[in-house]
Design a protein around this nucleic acid. Structure first.
Lengths: 341, 341
DNA sequence: AACCTCAACTTAACCGGTTAATCATAGGGG
DNA sequence: CCCCTATGATTAACCGGTTAAGTTGAGGTT
């Protein structure tokens, strides 16, 4: 294993018979270098296989060309996270690759890791930080932002008001609108006893989706039946059983996540109900598995990868010091009608 | 947005009334610093909120304290990748966090991105590189290794022999053993017409699993029926139909991935076969969804997160210059018996 | 008291780039 | 013919750490 010495600017300069500064200019594509010299330098670079040392470069430029993505590694991580984060990562990755930035992934659940993340960002190891759907009210984004570090969140952060004036910009999807479309679809189909399985009320996704359900039922003048779940399939099963016990004659249920919706389908089948004839079911997410459930699930599609891309784009702008960026970007959701409703 | 000046070593030194070198020693936990001085420095560090500048540090130490994980962003990415990579990432993340290293994620599919990855690694931006299950014969791991960069692969790399003597170490699971256990289970249950849906033959997972099937059937003196899939559910459906058409009386099928196994279940139901009474089905992966399929899937569990952890551990050792590391670590697989076989 | 040792600190060189300030040279204007 | 100005290169300072080499002084020897 030969740890071959890597050529430095100096070496290239000597070989090309010019100064370090000139080589630096050529490498960074500066104008005002004579064509002949430029060509000589380029040749030397190729011959030696020169690659700039990023550490040296960032030391002086104060830029690292990399971005951190923080994933919440919470105690109660749920399976659907494993369907959500890859899509986010993919979206982010595409956009960063185009901008030739690197993606640094960090998990942050414990307080200890919070410190780690903060120190890391503050140490100037990254040019900006993205947070993927935090649970609860996490102070970290605000803290970093108030330290002058470019930050963006996926999912509207909870408790925005009192962050000492530091508004953390975010990208989210239109939970509310999507749910309204879903519930109206149920109403329009003549359903009148429409229940919901809501998500955890410490997450925006949980809160907003429940709000959408409530608003639409109010609008239609129908009674509400709410059960709570935590986005897991198992909790969907439990919640569905509870709802059936409370109101055996319910004829539809809007479920705040696909994973819970699958749980609901299982519970309904166990209870001898047919979907959609007895009970209509609509989920939220449009994960791939929902195309293959029994019956295929009608659901609200959220553009997850797009969220990742948008986050990355916004953050890059922030880093470039662009002004007048929106505090919030809300991407549209869309009702995908299959067979369950 | 106040981009507050970060304090430097110099500032801390002035405040504590000592030299930069002394502060550096304290920060790095060197011995041979008087307790009183150490305490004064620590206080200054706290008061100023000093955090070392990583760029400056790596410039001299030639270490970045970060590790790259390369994911293949192939044209035909399949859904099961989204179940596989998060687990790998989680495993890797846990191990790196414990070692206080950072994880840099890179996608590498196109040739262009190959160059990007190579340049990045060569630029000394990371201390080592991990490759997650590459498709086909990818020269990149070998290239980097021969450049003296610590490298490790998840999944035995194809075409090892001719890499100019550079053997790339890897971590893999015991595909062969797992499949043997699965197929023997079928044989022991009295199944005699055992088909298989194999994975793509340009991936070790595809190749080894087919080999396991073939070896076990040889051993049992049974005839082989092979159909090929590409690890997608859709291809599982197709392959199962083909197998049924070829041999309507088959009584078992080993499927090389859970996702394809679900496809097979769908196709079998469509064809009016009951599982497991008519046809037994065994998959490979043990993804969470397989606990909830209809019927719950008997499958071979592979410890994916463990693979990530092991990869990270091995790579860290490699980076630390430990000798006598095994070229290969093969983790055990385990048959999980549910209801489909 | 002079000398040596050794622990603990400081000095200064260095890592590999960027870039402001400086300098050389050729061309144009008076 | 001389001076001034561009143009394009070089010089050198700097980024913020680490660490080898050098300095200082307290304590132990003889």
């Amino acid at each position: 294993m030969v740890t071959r010495e890597r050529p430095t600017l100096e070496a290239v300069a000597r070989r090309a018979g010019v100064s370090r500064a000139t080589v630096s200019r050529v490498v960074n594509g500066s104008t005002s270098v004579a064509a002949s010299i430029r060509e000589a330098v380029t040749r030397a670079v190729d011959e030696l296989g020169y690659v700039p040392n990023q550490a040296a470069r960032s030391l002086v430029t104060q830029r690292t060309e990399s971005i951190a993505l923080i994933l919440p590694e919470t105690a109660n991580r749920v399976f659907s996270d494993d369907l959500f984060f890859p899509a986010i990562i993919r979206g982010v990755g595409v956009e960063l690759e185009a901008a030739d930035k690197q993606l640094v992934l960090m998990m942050a659940g414990s307080l200890k890791s919070h410190g780690r993340v903060e120190r890391y960002a503050v140490a100037g190891h990254v040019d900006g930080v993205m947070f993927a759907s935090m649970h609860g009210e996490d102070p970290l984004p605000g803290t970093l932002a108030s330290l002058g570090i470019p930050v963006i969140c996926s999912g509207r952060p909870l408790s925005l008001p009192n962050l000492r004036g530091t508004q953390v910009p975010y990208v989210d999807v239109d939970h509310f609108g999507g749910v309204c479309a879903a519930v109206r679809h149920l109403v329009a189909a003549g359903r009148r006893r429409i229940a919901t399985i809501a998500g955890p009320q410490d997450m925006v996704a949980g809160i907003d989706r429940l709000a959408g359900y409530q608003a639409t039922l109010d609008e239609a003048g129908l009674a509400q039946h709410v059960a709570l779940g935590d986005f897991t399939r198992e909790s969907g099963i439990q919640a569905m059983r509870t709802l059936l016990a409370d109101d055996p004659k319910l004829d539809a249920v809007f479920v705040a996540s696909d994973m819970m919706a699958h749980g609901a389908l299982i519970a309904l089948k166990d209870a001898g109900r047919r979907v959609p004839s007895d009970v209509a079911v609509i989920g939220f997410d449009d994960f791939e598995i929902s195309r293959y459930s029994d019956p295929p699930l009608t659901t609200v599609r959220q553009p997850i990868a797009d969220m990742g891309r948008t986050m990355a784009r916004q953050l890059l702008r922030l880093i470039n010091g662009e002004h007048g960026l929106p505090d919030a970007v809300v991407l549209p959701t869309e009702l995908v009608v299959r067979e369950s409703a």
